[in-house]
């Protein structure tokens, strides 16, 4: 009995090691095969973005809420405009990127950032969240960004199925030092809602089909490019492109 057990005890170990090898090797191959989906797009898009023309109706589409939620100078030559939904997971994932980029270019008067609300219908609390951010913005424009930050970083809490989002929004409002009574009345008032609706109208006119959608001077930045490095590349290219015509202005303007 002992012997037969010893004789067979090697087999299970062999099977286990075999499975481990198959899993590791197979997993590695599958991992390598899965990666190209992101790689070519990152490699191919910079040129695509550069050659891309601004969306045809970008300048003529309804302007959205005025004044927009904006960081930077209104006269900047490069405009980064993000359409996002506070309840969308990929918008929350893109939030740290956008935050990093906005602070990286904060000193550059040629770059400005605009946030547009584009709450999707499938997200039950997204519209309310957009209204909450706008209501905060009615108190001061910096409060809009602070509220947006709260909404994105706590998304998994208030967006949870059984969460009482509105009372959580009040907590965030308190946390960022808003006048709570005013916030409450602005939440139910028309002004904040109108601003959200105006942004939505602009987004629909621009045929936005997913969030986040980021425009840089009217050109859509592919979602795979919405990374720290990708955004820098696109913005820097646009900064260069907008700086060059000024240098070449004599020849360009002569035809005017």
């Amino acid at each position: 009995m002992k012997e037969s057990k010893k004789g067979s005890s090697g087999i299970p170990v062999v099977i286990i090691v075999l499975v481990l090898v198959v899993v590791v090797v197979g997993g590695f191959i599958f991992y390598r095969q899965s990666q190209p989906t992101s790689k070519p797009s990152t490699a191919a898009t910079p040129s695509k973005t550069q050659n891309q023309q601004p969306q045809a109706n970008y300048a003529t589409a309804p302007p959205g809420a005025q004044p927009p939620n904006m960081l930077g100078s209104p006269t900047a030559t490069v405009t980064v405009e993000e359409f996002a939904d506070f309840q969308c997971g990929s918008c929350a994932a893109a939030h740290p990127v956008m935050k990093e980029i906005t602070s990286a270019y904060a000193g550059n008067k040629n770059v400005r950032f605009i946030f547009r609300n584009f709450p999707l219908q499938m997200h039950d609390k997204a519209y309310d969240a957009a209204v909450a951010a706008e209501a905060a913005g009615l108190q001061s424009s910096s409060k809009f960004w602070q509220m947006g930050d709260q909404l994105f970083t706590n998304q998994h809490i208030w967006a949870a199925q059984n969460a009482d989002a509105r009372s959580l929004f009040l907590q965030y409002a308190e946390k960022i030092g808003l006048d709570i009574e005013k916030f409450k009345s602005d939440m139910s008032g028309m002004q904040a809602k109108t601003r959200v609706d105006q942004d939505l109208t602009r987004g629909r006119a621009l045929a936005i089909s997913s969030t986040p959608t980021v425009f840089v001077n009217g050109k859509v930045v592919p979602y795979a490019e919405v990374t720290s490095a990708g955004m820098r590349r696109v913005i820097d290219a646009e900064l260069q492109a907008t700086a060059q015509p000024a240098q070449n202005a004599p020849s360009g303007n002569s035809s005017n």
Binding site: Q35, T37, S41, L120, M122, I208, S209, S210, Y223
Partner: peptide, 11 residues
């Protein structure tokens, strides 16, 4: 590990 988070599509 490999999935680029997919943007939230209307559809």
């Amino acid at each position: 590990l490999t999935a680029v988070p997919v943007p939230c599509s209307i559809v």
